[in-house]
Amino acid sequence: MEAVKQKNPSPKGTVMIQSESKWKKFAKNFPVHKYYYLLMIPGLLTLLLFRYAPMGGIIIAFKDFKIAEGIFGSPWAGLHWFKMLFSNSQFTRVLYNTIYISLSKLVFGFPMPIILAIMINEVKNVPLKRSIQSIVYLPHFISWVVIGGILFSMLSPTVGILSIFGFSKNPLLEPSNFRTLIVLSDIWKEAGWGTVVYLAAITGISEELYEAATIDGANRFQKIWYITLPSIASTIAVLLILRTGTLLTAGFDQLYVLQSPATMDVGDVLDTFVYRYGLAQGRFSFATAAGLFQSVVGLILVSISNMFARRMGQDGIL
């Protein structure tokens, strides 16, 4: 709640409305309040160093940055890197891959936790329900490096379970299957954990609604369709809207771990592109321009999606 309200008055506005008496109050409170400011220093300093200082570093996207010359010594380059970026065929493909993978995850991955949550909710045997929940949450807590290792060995044509079906090649190394497997493995890892929010929303539905429906002769599907789903509809809508804010993030860890030279054409995304060009090849300015493009589009998308979420009476993340 608070977080939303703070967004509206800009920091500037807050300073402007401080009237004389507020300053007096501030002076009066200071002997006590100074301890509050003291408490905040370490946290604010951390944010300043590791979040705000890099924002200043964005300037190198408009410069021809050389480490030896430093940020201020390097000559200006104007929009040179952005022009290069958009005329770079690799970048356009990377952008396409990012949106393609991210949208596929949204379209196929988003409904899964909803379906799973409804299914889990229909289990009336409590110990069984708890066990199923514990199991489906588990992959969320394991890192992509580990999952990647497991996937490669499971899907290996010689040693994995596919060997019995006579596959000749690891499907993760084939461009035609790669994106499908990215989406599937993402669903496998996160769908279970995604149910938590929906199960919490379902718990809030009044039992009386179901009893009334039972008396009216509704069957289980009808109860799900006419009671459960409409009751969690607002949760679904808000999560969907917020999810669209992350359209340009396809997931660094997953893609970096699962991609290989063979699948670079279909599996290279913005995050891995920036990493490769910036840190592996040392083309700092070019990579920063790509990263800035991603951040700015992300900022716009998140702002729009939050505006919609708020219009629906929800708070969003801002």
Partner: peptide, 16 residues
């Protein structure tokens, strides 16, 4: 909160 919606990106962070 602003840090949540905007960041400097990988390379500027690395340089800092």
């Amino acid at each position: 909160v602003f840090c949540m919606i905007f960041n400097g990106g990988m390379i500027p962070t690395y340089l800092v």
